[in-house]
Design a protein around this nucleic acid. Structure first.
Length: 195
DNA sequence: ACTTCCTGCCCGTTACATCA
DNA sequence: TTGATGTAACGGGCAGGAAG
């Protein structure tokens, strides 16, 4: 699984796959009607009502029927209004939690990308040091051989060392920190995938 | 065990209020 | 006036429980 698939899998755990879109019936404009709250104009709840509802929500995110009725009568609201308010509040709370989780995930991701770059940079430096050491050994070998510059022994030894060292990073050229399509260190492009 | 009805929740959407 | 934003309210689907 690649990074993108990992991220998609993670987000899908938080946000369930949306069911196939079904055509929804369009709601009529508010003209009033029985068996609903449509008999009056939509109004904002007063600050006192909101405060009391928030307080109750802080205690528990779901209301039992009895408590809902009591709260409604205390606040001069219809019990259905209280139920609707709680439902909408749960939705807002859930969205907020999702955003928090997403920010944390992005932060972790950015950290991992930075660490990856740091390690790759370190590999490059070590590789450079290795090359310098190889050259140095070769020069010393030439002196010892008295000018036999292409000693098969020296050459083989160097190859063996190189393979032994690079073997740990098995094909590490593939993972160098080169910004890939739709994916960079600032972590913004990949974010767009989920917007 | 099954069907039906009721209730409450969630999700997506709509309508309305408010503000820049 | 208008577009953006926040939120109250709605419709429909679904699950769980009670009753027949």
């Amino acid at each position: 699984m690649n990074r993108l698939e990992d991220a998609v899998a993670l987000i899908s755990q938080i946000v369930p796959q949306q069911a196939e879109a079904k055509p929804r019936r369009r709601r009529k404009k508010n003209k009033g009607g029985e068996n609903s709250l449509s008999g009056f104009k939509k109004r904002k709840l007063t600050q006192e009502q909101v405060d009391a509802l928030e307080l109750s929500f802080g205690n528990e995110h779901k209301l039992e029927s009895e408590k809902k009725n009591r709260l409604a009568s205390e606040l001069g609201l219809d019990p259905r209004q209280v139920a609707v308010w709680f439902q909408n509040r749960r939705t807002r709370w859930k969205n907020k939690k999702l955003e928090e989780g997403f920010r944390k995930l992005r932060s972790v991701h950015d950290g991992v990308v930075l660490e990856k770059c740091r390690l790759e940079s370190e590999v490059m430096k070590l590789k450079e040091k290795l090359r310098e050491a190889e050259n140095e050994i070769q020069r010393l070998g030439e002196r010892v051989d008295g000018g036999a510059s292409n000693s098969p022994i020296s050459s083989l030894t160097m190859e063996a060392m190189d393979t032994a060292f690079l073997g740990e990073f098995g094909g590490y050229e593939d993972v160098f920190c080169i910004p890939e399509n739709g994916y960079n260190i600032h972590g913004m492009e990949w974010v767009n995938l989920f917007m």
